[in-house]
Amino acid sequence: MTLLIIGSAVFISFKDKAASSPIFTGRVIYDEFQMPINNKFGHHTEAMDVVEGLDLKGKIIVMTGGHSGTGREATKAFVSRGATVIALARDVEWAKRNLKGLPNIEIEYLDLLKPESIETFAQKFLKSNRPIHALINSAGIFSSPLVKNEKGYERIFATNVLGHYELTVKLIPALKKAKGSRIINLASRGHRLSNVIFDDINFEHTEYEGVRAYAQSKTALILLSIKLDELLKNSNIRSFAVHPGPIPSSDLFAATLVGVAPDYKVNIMKSASKFVRLIHYTELLNFFRSPKNIGDIYKTVEEGGATTAWAAVSPELNGKGGLYLEDCNISVVVPNDSDAPFGVRNMHWIKSPLIEY
């Protein structure tokens, strides 16, 4: 088995263009708004590092995807400093297993494809009269065959964007109650692969590609973060988009299969992700790939949860919002046609009809 794993890592290194790419020397766009700050964190920072020394007692964090992969690492960091995390999960039993033994955890059922489950949770939480200090929209699905929900929306966009938007809007009263809260939307470097196809989001006429559907959903989440910040900052609610990094051992691939594949296939993917983390496959891949650009270095799930945690609780972001974050910092802006393995594409000036609020 060990030889098989090493062999696969060597094979991937030969196929991976990032491993042979020269150091990026292309153009970076000066943007006084989207400007990195000087701090001690970076690409290899872990979630536990960014909460060190913080007192999060009394803070309530509501999080989709907080039970698996990078989300679980952020959850562990939050509760280690005294915060309460309300983990919203479509697979409640999986959430219970993954979060067993952690303090200050509440698990609630929520399916982003089922508006009634979003409404049920939102009403239950609002009746508790508690504030939300951070709402983290971390759950998501990756490339998959074309499937539409009962309302006719393409499944990836409906899950990654529309479900989270509905959840966010319904929880605004609790976010206001915190008198200083944040909304975190998990985006991706994949946004560079597609704009939002505003006149054909559901691929009625456009040839469907799963990766493009995923990419447009992540671009949409960046635009959503910018717009939410614009609309809500006067209520002391700030919004951010986060790129967690390239993470081969993520549970994203298992989550993508839920609802469209037999349970045994979902369980195989869950076990596979857990196994490759156990044998440090990410580190092995990086060893054989040896990419020159730090943005191409794969992250562990512990590292992948760091920017999410930083975005949610770091005092370095006080008074800021509407930003795209990566590597526990504010990202630079690069041209839309850039092949930079970092940075946000130049989308501040895209006029988005995504929201009518």
Rank of each mutant, 00 (worst) to 15 (best):
L223Q: 10
I37W: 01
K292I: 14
P36D: 10
P103N: 14
V333G: 03
P335H: 11
N202Y: 13
I141N: 03
K96F: 04
I12D: 00
A306W: 04
I297A: 04
L232W: 11
T25V: 06
V50R: 10
Q34V: 07
S13Q: 14
D296W: 10
P315Y: 03
P173R: 15
Y281I: 09
G295W: 05
N160T: 14
V332T: 07
N236C: 05
L162Y: 08
A174G: 11
I29L: 09
G259M: 14
V333D: 00
D296P: 01
V333E: 01
E283Y: 07
F142C: 08
T300F: 00
K100W: 06
V92T: 11
G245K: 06
L193D: 04
D55K: 10
H43Q: 07
R90D: 00
Q216S: 02
E303T: 10
V332I: 07
K96N: 04
L228Y: 15
N38K: 15
V169S: 12
E154I: 08
K176I: 09
L3W: 12
Y208P: 07
I330R: 04
V28E: 00
V28M: 04
I118D: 02
L224W: 15
L285R: 15
G65D: 01
R130W: 04
P103W: 14
I86Q: 00
V169G: 05
I183P: 01
Y281P: 00
V51C: 08
M269A: 13
E303P: 02
E32M: 09
I12W: 09
D337C: 12
F41Q: 00
T64G: 01
V51I: 15
T84N: 07
L54H: 10
V333I: 14
M48H: 06
I5G: 00
